[in-house]
Amino acid sequence: MSLDKTFLEYPRRKYGMDHDRYDWSMLTDRPKVIWPEDKKLALWVNVCLQFFPINQKGKPFVPTGGMTMPYPDLRHYSLREYGNRVGIYRFLKAFDEYSIKPTFALNTRVAERYPYLMDVLKEREDEILCHGLHMDALHYGGQDIDEERKQIDYSLSKLRELSGQDVTGWISPDRSESDNTPDLLAEHGVQYFCDWVNDDMPYQFKTNNGEIVAMPLSQELEDSFILLNNKHTEDSYVEQICDACDFLIDEADEQGGRILSLNIHPWMLGQPHRIGKLESVLEYVTSKSEVWSASAADILKEYKRNGSS
């Protein structure tokens, strides 16, 4: 019994990362970032508006929150749709109550399917970013590049048309990428994307069409990660976000501006027994004088203004 000799060979064992996408850099070694009015913590509330087709292909995997029952899986399909028709309107009310400036990450299919919702979002003038075509249109290692290029091209151009915005931000469905995804995103005018979870601050990411920015959208603090994946209680969700908020404000005191990113889903936190927990979080965070509520693009702009790019 033995393995091929390549198992004991390490072609990328050298200084820095084992790929060429970004430079190795510890957060504490970078220049301090100063947010507007010298606020310590940027609050980025990112709302994912998603469409899960009931005829899910699940290729090459079933996305988080996707169908798990034989066709037609009405329970999951309808529970996800709950977010787009009920939960989101509870969210909007809560945002207005606490003067939050949210960012909306849309599956392009949501924009195509729900013109009423699109009108509401357009009227608010909040930032819209692209969350791919829909939750079953995954990007993945080994995907044909032309197929992926078409997918990205359609998702972005259609969302730009329907939103009337430039749409320069991106989150892949289930944050899944192929080796080519960052290159294709840059090719299509994307300036920042939010799939990578290796930092608490933005950083430069290399593509073969120039650099884009990786924005730190925490997965560990996501509502669905804490409640659905970890099966923690709603009360613990509130505690965890508040603890993170306190910690990041303290860290920012010494090390420069930080970001509290809350990636949330109306099909999860928009439920009647959970919306109050989101409100508790927003109440706590916005009660801090150190907090600046901002969109992803605002944060990116300030990060760049700090000369960090």
Partner: peptide, 23 residues
């Protein structure tokens, strides 16, 4: 668990070195 690159799995571990170690 998925085809490479498994972005979230790889990158959260990188977070440990970039961000978490100093803490």
């Amino acid at each position: 668990p998925r085809s490479n690159p498994y972005v979230t799995g790889y990158s959260i571990r990188d977070y440990g070195n970039r961000v978490g170690h100093m803490r």
